[in-house]
Design a binder for these strands. Structure first.
Length: 656
RNA sequence: GGGCGCGUAGCUCAACUGGAUAGAGCAUCAGCCUUCGAAGCUGAGGGUUGCAGGUUCGAGCCCUGCCGCGCCCA
């Protein structure tokens, strides 16, 4: 409703501007939120923007505009403020009646498929908090897109043939002397992702002490890539088992995927070979005959860097795509994968069912042999692709996009979006709590980077467990009479809200210095705070039923005039206005690509409700019209809170 | 050396992409539970937005130069 009026006003003002001054070509005029609520509901700085073009004082333009605009449906007044702001006041009764009737603008649905790739964890050890930020950001963005009517496919790329998997396999082989069969048994009988976490740290430090052992890694990479050996089988056992644990961890946070494209298939189905041919034909890469990159296929830095050089010289920054020994780099495979995402490779994976979630959702995984008929499932071929990857990889993402551009896929290059975010580091205090030794230099820093190689970091499941434990204490202390399993399920929902909100409240390019104290907090700007407001709204409605009363027929009791009377109360009006902005807040967050904006809105909304809750005692209200109105407000808040929480991937518990 | 990002209240972060008196949470202090749940509410103090210039009706945001920090590439 708010968005609808905003658009209507922007159009009306723009058409007057065009009629009066012949500029703007009818493009919607800019609207803003006034700084102060006393200024009205919508502010327009149009006069300032026109002042220069027209060489007139802003105030004079504003006066002309306001008298020329005339009446706009739903707007009760236009005022001039400051030295040229146009401030508009909405007709409160009209607005509320529209909300009650459920008036919405028709969605501009597009059938274009948007692909979002996120999570993308190396399948060689347990997930940690850095991975959580990625998955939660990605999943929330997917929810934002879907809730605004877009079609989205969620991919989780599995690098099951890379160095990290190879290292763990080396660990099982050379440090543990285990066969594939023995390891397969371990996957069933142990906390396998934790076991690999430690083993990975062990083999990494072994390499550090015995540099010659790195030959094991090279040999291992080779035999994994070849396939058909015991080592290759072991690699699959490890990677598949770890992927399973990752999906289970993410499922705890309500995160699911549609398809898992795996690197082993990128290799076996010759995705890279196909992309390589295209790149060679279009001369996007060339064979280097001299210098340090002699014998490699490289992409000239001019393709992805401003001011980059074409020729390999001393300061050569060209990117090697194929090494002189013939192996392809990670970027090369990434270009092939990106081409496939847009349906530009001329090839597809085969697919098999990988896992069904408890809610019935099916995840598929790539495979190299036909297991289902081709027309049963089709993935990839998106019109727009978001890669949720941390900002440390922005250089590589630039190279991938340059690859598309060099192949003349300009539109796809423009629709390749690196959805980047900063890393999650550890606060020095948290390092101390975890017994991680810090150098004097590290102690002075605001944060310390986690290291998977050293096994330093906070495991995702440990953090979730800790959150649940704390939430359970809180819930139990308030509800001693409830069944333990009910308290437990409330605690789980609270923990998830705390975690998801914590990862979302920071904007994407802010480094999170992870701190247990802050992450485990349930007061103030947190997920549980938003849940609490929702629970209280529901409680009012439930208590009403307990008293043997039922919800009035709002449409019958609350006429436009009644709404108008009730909303003369400034507090009520401001609260309702705030609650009605959910759609427009989510849409704006999509446009700016910032899930943190949705989190922030959820908090503001919860704050508004808490204030409403404190100010008005709904059930005790003697005046029937006002009581009906307050009940409607309560129900409206509840619906908006639930909708916003849903976009954040959070549910409110029955009680808390 | 080059590229990207960051620097805002004691601490952690916002600021609708150039708009009006820079806002939240935490922490501190003072109030509010016999009430639809206090995981809450009300209020107070706390700021030269790293520094110096520039662009314009208007700059935390854009440009230039410094200072400090981080990441990536070499």
């Amino acid at each position: 409703m708010f968005h609808l009026l905003e658009k209507r006003i922007a159009q009306a003002v723009a058409s007057r501007i065009e009629a009066l001054y012949g500029v703007g070509e009818g493009k919607p005029a800019q609207t803003e939120q006034p700084k102060q609520t006393t200024f009205g509901e919508i502010a327009m700085p149009a006069a300032f923007q026109l002042a220069r073009q027209l060489k007139k004082a802003p105030k004079q333009i504003a006066e002309q505009l306001s008298s020329a605009v005339g009446t706009i449906e739903g707007v009760s007044a236009i005022e001039i403020a400051g030295n040229g702001y146009l401030n508009l006041r909405l007709d409160r009764g009209y607005y509320a009646a529209g909300l009650l009737a459920g008036v919405k603008e028709e969605e501009v649905r597009s059938n274009e498929k948007i692909i979002v790739e996120h999570t993308n964890i190396n399948p060689n050890k347990a997930a940690h908090i850095g991975h959580l930020r990625n998955a939660i950001l990605g999943d929330t963005f997917v929810r934002m897109l879907r809730s605004t009517g877009r079609t989205v496919e969620v991919q989780n790329y599995i690098d099951n043939t890379g160095v990290q998997v190879a290292d763990v396999v080396v660990g099982f082989r050379h440090l543990e002397h285990k066969t594939a069969t023995e390891v397969r048994e371990l996957t069933k009988t142990t906390r396998f992702d934790y076991l690999c976490w430690d083993l990975y740290a062990r083999i990494s430090s072994y390499y550090a002490d015995h540099p010659e052992a790195k030959q094991w890694r090279l040999d291992m990479l080779h035999s994994i890539e070849e396939g058909h050996s015991e080592d290759a089988e072991l690699a699959h056992v490890v990677a598949d088992a770890i992927v399973k644990t990752h999906l289970a961890t993410m499922w705890r946070l309500h995160i699911v995927y549609d398809v898992l494209p795996r690197e082993s298939e990128i290799l076996h189905l010759q995705f890279w070979a196909t992309a390589f041919e295209q790149l060679k034909q279009r001369k996007a890469i060339y064979f280097e005959n001299q210098g340090k990159n002699k014998g490699c296929w490289v992409m000239p830095s001019s393709a992805f860097r401003e001011g980059g050089t074409d020729e390999g010289g001393e300061g050569d920054e060209s990117k090697v795509i194929v090494r002189s020994n013939g192996t392809v780099t990670y970027v090369g495979k990434d270009i092939a994968y990106q081409l496939w995402k847009f349906g530009l490779l001329g090839k597809d994976f085969h697919y098999r069912k990988w896992h069904i979630y408890p809610n019935g959702h099916q995840v598929w995984a790539s495979t190299d042999s036909v297991q289902v008929s081709k027309d049963e499932h089709h993935f990839g071929g998106g019109a727009r692709v978001y890669n949720v990857i941390d900002s440390r990889q922005s250089y590589l993402q630039d190279v991938v996009v340059a690859g598309l551009r060099a192949l003349d896929y300009t539109r796809q290059a423009e629709n390749s979006i690196h959805f980047s975010y900063e890393m999650v580091a550890l606060s020095p205090r948290t390092c101390v709590e975890m017994g991680i030794e810090l150098s004097d230099e590290d102690k002075k820093r605001p944060y310390v980077e986690v290291s998977g190689r050293k096994g330093l970091g906070v495991k995702a499941d440990d953090l979730i467990d800790k959150l649940i434990e704390k939430a359970l204490e809180e819930v139990t202390s308030r509800h001693l009479d409830e069944a333990p399993e009910k308290n437990r399920s409330a605690a789980e929902q609270i923990a998830i809200a705390a975690l998801r909100y914590f990862m979302l409240k920071y904007t994407r390019n802010s480094v999170i210095a992870f701190d247990f104290g802050e992450a485990l907090s349930f007061v103030g700007e947190t997920g549980p705070y938003v849940q609490y407001a929702t629970v209280r709204a529901r409680n009012i409605l439930r208590k009403l039923a307990d008293r043997g009363e039922s919800l009035p027929d709002f449409a019958a009791v609350l006429s436009r005039e009644a709404m108008s009377r009730q909303l003369a109360n400034e507090d009520c009006w401001q609260l309702l206005l705030q609650a009605s902005k959910a759609d427009s807040a989510i849409e704006r967050a999509v446009a700016s690509g910032e899930p943190a904006h949705v989190a922030r809105f959820a908090f503001d909304l919860a704050q508004a409700f808490s204030s409403f809750y404190q100010k008005f005692h709904v059930l005790d209200e003697p005046d029937p019209e006002k009581k009906a109105f307050l009940l409607w407000m309560t129900d409206y808040f509840r619906a908006q809170l639930e909708r916003t929480l849903d976009v954040l991937g959070v549910e409110a518990p029955e009680y808390m």
